[in-house]
């Protein structure tokens, strides 16, 4: 038996850190009120800093939601992340909500978390369904890199464009998915097309032509492709992705 097998188990070589101080140990929330809990102090700071950009806020189940003007989201987020008194260094989630209501606007939701101060803040912005406002919000990719795929998913599922995102493509559905945006309320659960049509569309995708144009161009491989494939992909057909 070699030597290392006979050694005793030793604790691994890394630090064991107890997060937080003993004095301010967080506790499991008990008897959470439906409405009217404590407001996150960042709301007052946001109002002092940005004024009319910040809309109404409410506290439901002890979670503070702040509405932000649509085109100022990225600025607000950048400040929340970089300001040492706020320090929202962690982006939990980016998603959207559409209500079962023909008029009620779609809401885009950002869940921010400050690990330093143990705070949780929900930012929201409203996108009216009808009217001239496009379904567009600024991307927060410049603030948190983690927003990359979350925003792509939101675009894929709701059709909300995140301006300034470096690579806003569909991510879960394939690129020429024709049926629309699945999580919109006007999208039926079983899809818009019949099952045979869905299957036909899926199977007509050629698995060999699944590389996207940028993937082929970075590899300098486009010129080496067979003639028919070059024609197909060069003509804009992009199966798979």
């Amino acid at each position: 038996m070699s030597e290392h097998l006979t050694q005793d188990h030793a604790a691994p070589a890394f630090a064991i850190v107890y997060p937080g101080q003993p004095g301010d140990a967080p506790a499991t929330p008990k008897q959470v009120p439906h409405k009217g809990g404590a407001v996150n102090p960042s709301v007052a700071a946001l109002r002092a800093k940005f004024g009319p950009v910040i809309g109404r806020h409410d506290v439901v189940w002890n979670e503070t939601t702040v509405f932000v003007q649509r085109d100022k989201v990225a600025e607000v987020c950048a400040w929340l992340q970089s300001d040492p008194a706020q320090s929202y260094e962690y982006l939990s989630d980016v998603t959207a909500v559409e209500y079962r209501d023909a008029v009620r606007p779609i809401e885009v939701v950002w869940h921010l978390r400050s690990i330093k101060f143990r705070r949780f803040l929900r930012l929201k912005t409203e996108l009216p369904k009808a009217g001239k406002t496009p379904l567009e919000v600024p991307s927060v990719w410049g603030v948190w890199k983690g927003a990359d795929w979350l925003e792509r998913e939101c675009y894929d599922m709701f059709g909300i464009k995140f301006t300034g995102h470096p690579d806003l493509r569909r991510i879960l559905m394939w690129e020429q998915y024709k049926e629309g945006f699945p999580l919109r309320k006007d999208f039926p659960m079983r899809g818009r097309f019949s099952r045979s049509e869905q299957l036909k569309n899926a199977l007509s995708a050629n698995p060999e032509a699944r590389y996207s144009m940028e993937e082929l161009s970075i590899a300098d491989a486009f010129e080496d492709l067979p003639h028919d494939m070059r024609k197909r992909i060069g003509g804009g057909e992009r199966t798979g992705e």
């Binding site: 079983r190 019949s194 099952r195 045979s196 049509e197 299957l199 036909k200 199977l203 007509s204």
Partner: peptide, 21 residues
């Protein structure tokens, strides 16, 4: 060999029937 026009082994009507809820 699947039907080249539809890429399906079985006819579309049969697929719809099979995958009804």
């Amino acid at each position: 060999a699947p039907d080249p026009s539809s890429q399906l082994y079985i006819p579309p009507s049969r697929i719809d029937e099979l995958s009804e809820p």
